[in-house]
Design a binder for these strands. Structure first.
Lengths: 152, 152
DNA sequence: CAGTATCCGGTCTGATACTG
DNA sequence: CAGTATCAGACCGGATACTG
C-alpha cells in the first residue's frame, strides 16, 4: 500500500491528471460524455436524456468543444434541413476506455450483486474483458509489475 | 464509429457508469482521490495540497466514507497521540487504474508535447504501458474485437 | 491538528419562457 | 429543434474565526 505522505510527489500545477479533472471532471460533463459515447449527438437528445438544464448543457458543450473533446458539426438527413450535432473528436473517443473502466468499477463496487446492464466480452472467445494495462506487445502488466517513474 | 442515437441503450437509473459518476464524479472528490492515491491521508494535508475550503473538504470526505470508497481510521505515531486519517478502502484502491488511465489521457491529449511528470513502465522490460482491455488470460482485446452486450 | 461555524459574493442548478 | 433569457435558490470558493 502507498505510504503516508504529507503531499503528492507531483505538484498540482503540472499534473496531467489534475488537468484532465479540470477539463472533464464534473458531473454534467461526465454524463454528457457518457451519452455521446452511446451515440447521442443532438442538443435536445442530451437534454431529454439527462434532464440537464439547457443553460448548463449549452455551457458544458461549449467548454468541451473549446477543450477539443467534442466538435460541433452539421449533419443533414435526406429531405430534412441541416442540423447541428455534437460529436466526439479523436481526443473524446480516447476517453472511452476510461469510462469503460469506470463502468466496471461501478459494476464491481457500487451495485450489490446486480447483474450489470452492459457487459464487455471478446467477440470471438466470449471471454469477459476488463480494464488493465498492457505493454507495447499487448501483454498485460499488473500493478505490482509496474514501475512508476517521476520526472525530476 | 457509434451511430447517432436519440438516447442511450442503458437507462440512466440503472446505469452503473452513471452511479459511479454520481459517487465520485465531481472536481474536488476526484482531486481528493488523486491525493489519496499518492499517499495523502490527513485532513490538513488534503486541505493544504488542494486549497479546498475546509467545509467542502469535510463534506466530501464524509460522502466518500459513506460511499465506502474511503475509511476514517486512527493512526498513532510513536510518542505522539492518535490522529484520524482517511484511507482508501479496497473499493477506493480499485479506482487507481481508472485514474491512471485518465492520467494517460491527459498526457496524450491535454499537454502539447510536454514530457509527462509521471510515467508507467513495465519494471523489467522498461516498456511503456498503456491502459487497455484484457481477457482472462491477460491478452489484449482491442475495441474493435470487443462485443458489447446489453442485458434485456 | 482536525474539524465545525459563519459570512459573503459568485457560480451553478433547476424551472420556465421565449425566439429563429 | 437549438438554443438564449431570466430568475430564485442552492451550493461553492475564499476568508477567518473558534473549539477540543
Amino acid at each position: 500500500m502507498t505510504p503516508r505522505a504529507p503531499r503528492s510527489p507531483v505538484p498540482l500545477e503540472i499534473c496531467h491528471l489534475a488537468k484532465a479533472i479540470e477539463a472533464i471532471g464534473d458531473r454534467w460533463t461526465l454524463l454528457i460524455l457518457r451519452s455521446s459515447l452511446f451515440g447521442v449527438r443532438r442538443f435536445d437528445d442530451y437534454q431529454k436524456e439527462l434532464g440537464v438544464p439547457r443553460t448548463v448543457l449549452s455551457g458544458r458543450l461549449s467548454k468541451l468543444v473549446k477543450a477539443g473533446v467534442m466538435a460541433k458539426q452539421s449533419y443533414k438527413e435526406e429531405g430534412k434541413r441541416a442540423r447541428p450535432e455534437y460529436v466526439l473528436t479523436e481526443a473524446g473517443e480516447a476517453l472511452r476506455p476510461v469510462l469503460m473502466a469506470l463502468t466496471q468499477w461501478g459494476d464491481d463496487w457500487l451495485s450489490k450483486g446486480a447483474t450489470p446492464p452492459i457487459s464487455f466480452t471478446h467477440a470471438k472467445s466470449r471471454q469477459r474483458v476488463r480494464p488493465g494495462f498492457v505493454d507495447e506487445d499487448g501483454k498485460e502488466t499488473t500493478l505490482s509489475e509496474m514501475r512508476i517513474s517521476l520526472r525530476r
